[in-house]
Design a protein around this nucleic acid. Structure first.
Length: 266
DNA sequence: CTCCAGGTCCAGA
DNA sequence: TCTGGACATGGA
């Protein structure tokens, strides 16, 4: 099926390091969305989607890619700031993906001190070993050494213990979902292997807390250059700065800065 | 062979 | 509170 995806940029969305389970060849992406396998391609304003679904595909994609959201306020922020404007002209239509919270948590525990290539490799290893992306219960029932064999390295106990916590406290994600951003963040950093940066990724990608502003090395470098005259500043200060400056749109702004910084656009 | 990658944890000042 | 090192792994 195909439909006109208004104000949507598939490539920027899937190439901006939000998800790690998609495979790309040429301009076609193949991956799982809510457990369903999809082949996606965007051409001349149309989104082409092949899947086992028929009529159900469109609402599913709209939900997953956050297409119903009016992001013109984000555009206004980017347009009116000459430091960020280039990201808008290149990535306009980039969306924040609404990921499964547990998958986001898993992937971003794995992401720490790691590179994208290897994060994707580990994602594939997990997917193949468990015949599908493993939920918390599956991970919790695994021995640490198996996670190490799958490439998790020293992060194996982090993921294992987080999985044990989540599967023995099934309500904890609901608590985070209902909590305001600050409280949700405070709860998230209590998970083993989750610090301030990973917490913000999980809250942003898994729980749609759009105030979240993950400060990784790329964001730190870009923010220092753009707003702090290349002065040395802490992650906490940058985080605080972004919160005050962009408020409820900080998460979306972060995605444009991050993708732009990685690709030398800003 | 050494270095580094979407950080986090821990210990010591 | 803030800073420096260790940490598994595989690709460059």
């Amino acid at each position: 099926m195909k439909f006109k995806a208004v104000d949507f940029n598939l490539e920027a969305t899937l190439d901006s390091g939000q998800v790690f389970g998609f495979k790309k060849n040429a301009h076609t992406y193949e991956g799982l969305i809510r457990g369903e396998r999809f082949r996606l391609r965007q051409q001349s304003g149309f989104l082409f989607a092949e899947s086992g679904l028929n009529g159900g595909a469109r609402p599913l994609l709209s939900e997953y890619f956050d297409l119903h959201r009016d992001i013109t306020p984000v555009y206004e922020i980017l347009r009116s700031d000459s430091r960020l404007a280039p990201t808008l002209s290149v990535y306009k239509g980039m969306r924040l993906i609404r990921q499964d919270p547990w998958e986001a948590l898993t992937c971003f525990i794995i992401s720490s001190n790691n590179n994208v290539k290897r994060i994707q490799l580990i994602w594939q290893n997990l997917f193949e070993y468990y015949a599908g992306f493993p939920g918390a219960a599956r991970i919790a029932a695994t021995h640490e050494r198996m996670l190490r064999q799958l490439g998790l390295g020293y992060r194996a106990p982090f993921l294992l213990h987080s999985a044990q916590y989540v599967s023995t406290n099934p309500q904890c994600f609901d608590v985070i979902r209902e909590a305001p951003y600050e409280e949700a963040r405070a709860r998230a950093v209590c998970f083993p292997g989750i610090g301030p940066k990973v917490a913000d990724c999980v809250l942003l990608y898994g729980f749609q807390k759009f105030e979240a502003f993950p400060v990784d090395v790329w964001i730190l470098r870009a923010m220092r250059k753009l707003y702090f005259n290349n002065r040395k500043v802490s992650e906490d200060r940058v985080h605080d700065f972004a919160q005050k400056r962009w408020g409820a749109h900080a998460g979306y702004v972060q995605q444009y800065i991050f993708h732009g910084a990685k690709n030398g656009v800003i």
